[in-house]
Design a protein around this nucleic acid. Structure first.
Lengths: 245, 245
DNA sequence: GTGCAACATATTTTCGAAATTATAGCGTTT
DNA sequence: AAACGCTATAATTTCGAAAATATGTTGCAC
């Protein structure tokens, strides 16, 4: 074999990451059928390796596995976004509260560092900074830095998965949105509240931040969602007589 | 191929389920190395299929994938159990509150049905009913029925995964425990509070139920946990100089 | 024309061999 | 002895062909 994976990662893990990026960035579009032949070409791996990556993505709810009929990029819907938003509020609030209680000096420093990098990036790229991949990274790191000290690995991991799923929605709307400066001042306010260790204020701010972002997505990209479209999926053999389980 | 999977499931999905059961029931013990050759023999599938199942279990935190050194059953620890318990309280409370607000008659009926089956099973098996596999199923269905009407698929799915992880701990201690009648009256009290739509009481009861179960696990099985044992894992090449990510 | 069976094609899923990587054993040197 | 390099062995990871399944098409009866 000529080229092998660079880091200590496994090849399937590599593909997993690349595919995750492609999904949350909507290169692979919601609802799109994922045919093995084209994926094999795109990522240059074999069937089994692809299958492994797809399985893990299915466990993360970024793709759905349909019986023996292959895989599909997880569809989007307003209902799903609203649900996701509510759960995210629950989890982020809890994580942030714990972090403020337990965070130390290093935690504070990392927040300021991430915030600084976020501001610098805006200045450097200007105007449409939020369309760049670099922005996604540094913005994600900022929000992570806020809750990093919460001391709960289980909570942090759930949060990370929810954040990724929500990022896909943000990305869908980013090309249509205009009023981004507001988000910037919100970020600043959150940092201030956190530094003051003002839990009540910080939680309210982060909740509003999440909910308003979600509302913005619906406002600007809601028209892309296949909400009321008549059932497009082929009916399954058995009419889904699933009991309460 | 002679025998194929029974239902509409895929073969890898089959193995996934069987393996999940074996892990939460501690047939595959915490920390145990999962060698492909023996697994292949046990589950009668090929390497790639196994790999797919293992990958999904890794995404569920029931096994951990170690670079290119294979898979290991996720280890247990008191810290992990406590963490898990806290997050479970957060999630179950939220789900139960929503269910009580939104639940309809069918939901109430399903709760009574599940509770009834749970009681009958005790009467039928008697004494050490809680050691049977059937108990695990009906007990799980009861707790699910309480929150089934919460209306949030995202929350329900998170809850399901946390429940499974916690079940592994319960199972570890079940052989040592004695005072089970207390749990039975707790279940009854929860049902009553839920039927009265008394949110405050129901949330307090479910929280206490979860926390006390967790404490019982630590009391009776804590001695099995490799908490203070000196690092048994072989040191990785790089001394893990991971930054804040 | 509609429904339906039988065949042909396309796609997914599984398998075990082959390549890659880690681990253990052994001799040599300091 | 401990540390290092080397080889041999054992394990995992990847691959693409082959089996199983789903999908599409044609022909025939009604």
């Amino acid at each position: 074999m000529e080229q092998q994976n660079a880091g200590g990662e496994t090849r399937a893990g590599d593909v997993l990451q690349r595919m995750r990026q492609d999904i949350v960035n909507c290169v692979l579009k919601p609802g799109e059928k994922l045919r093995f032949e084209s994926l094999r070409e795109r990522y240059e791996v074999s069937f089994s390796t692809l299958r492994e990556a797809l399985s893990r993505l299915a466990a993360e709810n970024l793709v759905v596995a349909e019986g023996q009929r292959g895989f599909v990029v997880a569809p989007v819907s307003i209902a799903d976004l609203n649900d996701l938003t509510d759960v995210r509020v629950l989890v982020e609030r809890e994580a942030l509260a714990k972090a403020i209680r337990k965070g130390d000096d290093l935690w504070e420093g990392n927040i300021l560092s991430a915030f600084h990098r976020m501001e610098r990036l805006q200045q450097r790229i200007g105007r449409e900074y939020y369309l760049s991949d670099e922005w996604s990274v540094v913005h994600g790191e900022f929000h992570y830095s806020l809750v990093a000290a919460c001391g709960s690995p289980v909570l942090l991991e759930m949060r990370a998965k929810l954040f990724e799923r929500a990022h896909r929605y943000r990305r869908m709307s980013s090309q249509f949105r205009t009023k981004w400066r507001e988000k910037d001042v919100e970020h600043k306010m959150i940092v201030d509240a956190v530094m003051d260790r003002n839990i009540e204020t910080a939680l309210s701010l982060i909740e509003r931040h999440i909910r308003e972002t979600s509302e913005n997505v619906i406002e600007h990209a809601g028209h892309l969602f296949p909400e009321l479209t008549t059932e497009t999926r082929r009916p399954t053999k058995k009419p889904a007589t699933v009991a309460a389980e």
